[in-house]
């Protein structure tokens, strides 16, 4: 789409309506399934409680206090920070699939960059989204490897290779930040 073209009011109204309809379905799938996932995750502690793992009200109250201190502030600030970066569909998926800062956001930047989209544009949000969804599936495959072959892999891989694994995070931060800067401050407006 030529982003600089001048739209007639009718076209503009049509675009806005299409976007709103799209967002409505994203709220339904994104938000609805997010709440469903939240409810299902609560079954895990409840099951452990039922099996003799109930730590008592005092411990639970202490845990709540610890979590409020540790995460309470981030509950309000963190999603607000990611919203403009990932867009609405990206925010829903980012939080249900996790590891935003270390995985979803850099992958999303890479996808945007690769199709030459500007961050914050509809094209940018969508391109980031497609990249992010791929990462959900690729990461699931990796996790299954961790679960079933992890200890074996660490045993058979030479130390030279496993030693570099500890530097994955700084490497992602470096490369990801460069992509982010490129996206935030494009040389010429497209």
């Amino acid at each position: 789409m030529d982003e600089n073209k001048v739209l007639t009011p009718e076209q503009e109204a049509h675009e806005e309506e299409a976007y709103n309809n799209y967002l409505k379905s994203i709220h339904k799938f994104g938000g609805g399934i997010m709440i469903a996932i939240m409810l299902v995750t609560w079954l895990a502690p409840l099951y452990v409680f039922a099996k003799g793992g109930f730590p008592g009200g005092k411990v639970l109250a202490g845990t709540v206090a610890a979590m409020l201190v540790q995460e309470g502030w981030s509950w309000f600030t963190e999603p607000l920070m990611w919203l403009p970066i990932l867009g609405i569909p990206g925010l829903y998926l980012g939080y249900t699939s996790g590891n935003i800062g270390s995985m979803r956001a850099p992958v999303s930047f890479a996808a945007m960059n690769n199709v030459g989209a500007v961050k914050g544009s509809k094209k940018g949000d969508a391109a980031g989204m497609f990249g992010m969804i791929t990462s959900v599936f690729v990461n699931l495959v990796f996790l299954l490897i961790v679960i079933f072959l992890g200890s074996w892999l660490l045993k058979v891989l030479p130390d030279v290779v496993t030693g570099t694994f500890n530097y994955a995070s700084p490497a992602i931060q470096g490369a990801g930040t460069l992509l982010l800067l490129k996206m935030l401050f494009p040389k010429k407006a497209k």
């Binding site: 270390s102 391109a127 694994f165």
Partner: peptide, 17 residues
């Protein structure tokens, strides 16, 4: 965009690993 996600995820997936 979809394909970019495949290889771009590998580095981060190692960190999670």
């Amino acid at each position: 965009a979809t394909k970019t996600g495949i290889f771009a995820t590998i580095g981060p997936a190692v960190a999670v690993f």
